[in-house]
Design a protein around this nucleic acid. Sequence first.
DNA 1: AAACTTTATTAATCATACAATAATGTAAAA
DNA 2: TTTTACATTATTGTATGATTAATAAAGTTT
Lengths: 258, 258
Amino acid sequence: MRERKDRDRTFSRRSLTGQVAHSLGMQIVCGEIAEGEVLATEEAASRAHSVSRTAYREAIKVLTAKGLVDSRPKIGTRVRPRDDWNMLDPDVMQWASKLATTTDFADSLFEFRLIIEPEAARLAAEKQLEEKINMIATGLEIMETTEPSTQENLDADLAFHAAILNASGNEFLRSLNHMVDALLIWSFEISSRKEGIRAASVPLHRSVYNCILKRDGNGAKQAMAHLLQSAREDIDQIVLPDNEGDQASANRVGPTQR
Amino acid sequence: MRERKDRDRTFSRRSLTGQVAHSLGMQIVCGEIAEGEVLATEEAASRAHSVSRTAYREAIKVLTAKGLVDSRPKIGTRVRPRDDWNMLDPDVMQWASKLATTTDFADSLFEFRLIIEPEAARLAAEKQLEEKINMIATGLEIMETTEPSTQENLDADLAFHAAILNASGNEFLRSLNHMVDALLIWSFEISSRKEGIRAASVPLHRSVYNCILKRDGNGAKQAMAHLLQSAREDIDQIVLPDNEGDQASANRVGPTQR
DNA sequence: AAACTTTATTAATCATACAATAATGTAAAA
DNA sequence: TTTTACATTATTGTATGATTAATAAAGTTT
């Protein structure tokens, strides 16, 4: 039921504008274009990307909207300081995840999710918004009845986490679901390198849901925290594979270089 | 020290494109243009706004980047379901705050901040990133030495909260600072209707800082929670001025129904 | 009824021209 | 010499028209 379409919630890459925004956004987030750096003029840059100035400008507007750049006449388009980037924007998030060579990214990520998602689970248990809780069940059931490391299983996982955020009844928390999607897809790609990891997490999902059903707010919160910590350990095992302590091994799991 | 420039971190309203994006974005977030609704064609809409198609299209790209709309040939530009909006985007946040007539908005808001900011304070206390903690002090000192309800005092308040998020050492938390800015400005405008409210909060800020200095993570967390709860009560007093309906106040914690 | 064409509508893209802006250099004035 | 005022110029901002591509909906055939 959940098809590819759900993946399109981030800025569309079908259009030329989308492609340029994606390409430039990635370069900026990955540091290939440094903070404070001024991009080539529209004239030159659009030619470099083989698109019209119009298409290029629209791409820049997209990046501007996400806080990545700022354009001014006579100055040019300058990359804004990292502090101003909207890291919680699903696209920025996804771009950033591509360069997640260091464990820093994974750490910040799980630290953040550990703040957000357990509380969302608690709120879901306390508020008991029936229809929304049913959607959690739906995701969970598919997770339990499909093979781990399949597309369908991942989609169910995404649906589960999105449903929890949604069932928190807080629209700011709900807004994080696109971001969490980007993350889950990232960790799916990482963790599918190693067998058996994902299967183990299904019961943890179940116990989160059970607590919510029982209206056990603190239980749900703890269960979710447990689930995330478990996921973090799995990821750490891979991203930081047998630490002999040197930089090289940490960098070994390189990003998808273009 | 902190001038107007800091207020410009959201999408610039100087350009025509910015004005149109602002106007349309506001209409969408406020529900004047409903979810699922299809906007007029570029041709018509741009004329309605008295701008060129170029400027209008660029505005649409901005809204697309924030998840508010989606354009396709033969379909037109359609307002996406509320679930897809990036509520954490500073601009969207600011637009949404304009329609905060209901307490729902304030409630969701404080619920969210109560999840985020106390944890940020705890992390700041635990990680002890010296330079960043100094920035907290700077904001606090200005708060303590300026008149409440002045621009300077508000700016110091913004700086204080931003510094805490920053000192959490987590870049996702840090990203929330623009959003929190929008909120603080909103509550400043609300609360400045009533005298004396803001002065009372200064000691609460101080105790958050003291806990961070003492490396008391849980203390900092609780102090921040206390600060926010106090702010919430102040706002509630004004937004919901002497509730005549007990029913209404009982349901107050409810979700944003639609 | 189903599958497939066609058509009409709309955004997407391109090319070009001109306007507005602001950094920088230049000359006049103190 | 320093400052002020002014002109220069590079860059984005805005406007317009033309062309292309995508696609939903209507129509046609099987």
